[in-house]
Each structure stands twice: as C-alpha cells, then as structure tokens.
C-alpha cells in the first residue's frame, strides 16, 4: 500500500479536480446563459411580440411563431395531460405490483428518452401523409406524445408519496374508487401533479425536431390548426441558419424567450417539489 502522505495527496488532488469539474459545468451553464442574454437582449423589443415574421430587412417580429407555439402547446397539454394523468394513476393504484404495470412503466421510460425526431416522423406517417398536408393538429399531437411520458412519470411518483392510510380511510367510508382517486389521492398530491404538467409544458415548449415534419412552420399569420402553423423553435431554426443579420438577431431573441420560459418553469416546479418534501 502506498504511503499515507501519497494517499492523502491523491485524495486532495481528486477532490480538487472534482470541485473543478463541478465549477466547470456551472461556468458552461453561465456561458450559455450569458450568450443568450448578450445576443438576445439587444434584439428584443416590442416589435418581436407585435409583428409577424417578415422577409429579411422588412422589420418583422415573431408574433405568429409565439402564438403558434402557444396554441400547439395548449392543445398538446389538453390531449396529453389527461392520458398521462390516468396512466400514471393506473401505475400507482390499480396496476401496482402487477406484471402489466411493470411493462407499461418500462415502455413509458423508453418513450421518455426516445429520440423526439422519431415522434415527429411517426406523426408524419400517421397524420400528415394520409390527410394530405402539414397541420397544427399534427404538431400538437406530436407534442402531446412527448407530454404523456413526462406526466405519467411524475404522476406515479407523486401518487406513491400519498400515504396508504388516506386511501384506506376513504374506502372505509364506502367511497367508490373514482371518488377516492379524484377527491382524496389526486387532491393530496395536487402540487406534485402540477409540477408534472409544468415540466411537460417546459419540454413541449423547447422541442423543435418533432415539429419539423408535422406543423412545418408558417411565415404568415395563421391560427388555423388544420393548416401549417408557425412555432417559435422552428422559426429560430430557420432564422439562425440564415445569412441575414436581422433574422439571426430575431433567432437570438426567440432563443432567449424560450430559454427564460423553460428555465422558469423548471425552477418553479422544483420549488413546488421542495416545498412538498
């Protein structure tokens, strides 16, 4: 065995390097945020929120992209949340300990980390090809498929935190299961369930790849879900890769808006969770 002095030195060196690694990751996070702020803030102005996308040099904004994103996210949440909530409840209540619940949980974990671009291709095959065109509906459904596994996961985790005694007390009073779940279990886990929805919202807001082949993007004003619909991530993608300075600036402004929104949602859900525990 090496001498004590040498072992102590190794220990110190590893501690220093590990602390350095942690510092490095914080620095990288700060660097990304700084890049967004320094390039996005100067480009941010009222025009971003009041004008729709326009050809380079015409002083356009991102209004249609922001509205399009909001519409698709809301529709995705309206479709995905109930399914996710019910599936998570199934895993935590009826299916607990059964083989089928294990399989569902496993499949949900795979869906949670599956490449989002493939969800886009799937919805393209499912809705865009048969119905003859890109549409806001297709985009919303692609996002809904991303929302579901996030909600399932948090719902199950949160319901598992609810004490068994609460359910038993309700059952003992003769309540049917739907009443126990909706009025007792869900209510007890309310804050946790909300965090799941917030996290799903954050995920849907930043996803670009699944929208490429579903809602496509739209440079005009359209709130028709049956037609191609603009979205913030797609507009950013299109503008960032363009050679026009004002478009690139708008892309940074959009990137800043999305990141601030997504990070706020994440911090918010963490605060709610911390309060619960």
């Amino acid at each position: 065995m090496a001498s004590l002095a040498r072992r102590r030195t190794t220990d110190l060196v590893v501690k220093a390097v590990s602390t350095g690694f942690a510092a490095l990751s914080i620095v990288l996070l700060a660097w990304i945020l700084w890049t967004l702020l320094s390039r996005g803030l100067p480009a941010l102005g009222p025009h971003v929120f009041t004008r729709i996308t326009a050809p380079p040099g015409a002083g356009g904004g991102l209004l249609n992209a922001i509205v399009g994103s909001l519409i698709q996210i809301v529709v995705a949440l309206v479709i995905g949340t109930p399914i996710g909530l019910m599936c998570g409840t199934f895993l935590a209540e009826n299916g607990r300990g059964t083989q089928i619940a294990n399989v569902v949980r496993f499949v949900n974990d795979v869906l949670l980390s599956a490449p989002s671009i493939l969800i886009g291709l799937f919805v393209y095959q499912l809705l865009v090809v048969p119905f003859g065109g890109f549409s806001g509906w297709a985009g919303s459904i692609a996002l809904a498929i991303l929302v579901i596994p996030v909600v399932v996961r948090t719902t199950e985790d949160m319901l598992n935190l609810v004490p068994i005694g609460l359910r038993e007390a309700a059952f003992a009073l003769g309540a049917p299961q739907w009443k126990v779940v909706t009025f007792v279990t869900w209510r007890a886990a309310r804050a946790g369930l909300v965090t799941g929805i917030l996290l799903a919202l954050a995920r849907a807001a930043g996803e670009t790849a699944p929208l490429l082949f579903t809602s496509l993007g739209n440079n005009g004003w359209s709130i028709n879900l049956g037609a191609p619909m603009a979205s913030l991530p797609i507009a950013i993608y299109q503008y960032a890769a363009s050679p026009f300075e004002d478009w690139v600036a708008l892309a940074w402004a959009g990137a800043l808006i999305i990141t601030v929104g997504v990070l706020t949602l994440n911090v918010l859900s963490r605060l709610i969770l911390a309060k619960m525990k």
């Binding site: 990751s25 990288l28 996070l29 990304i32 967004l36 954050a202 807001a205 930043g206 996803e207 670009t208 790849a209 991530p233 950013i236 993608y237 960032a240 990137a255 999305i258 990141t259 997504v262 990070l263 994440n266």
Partner: peptide
Amino acid sequence: LAAIPSII
C-alpha cells in the same frame, strides 16, 4: 443544463 432546449 438538462432543461435547456436542444436548439439552444
């Protein structure tokens, strides 16, 4: 870092 969207 995990929450920042891929496009960013």
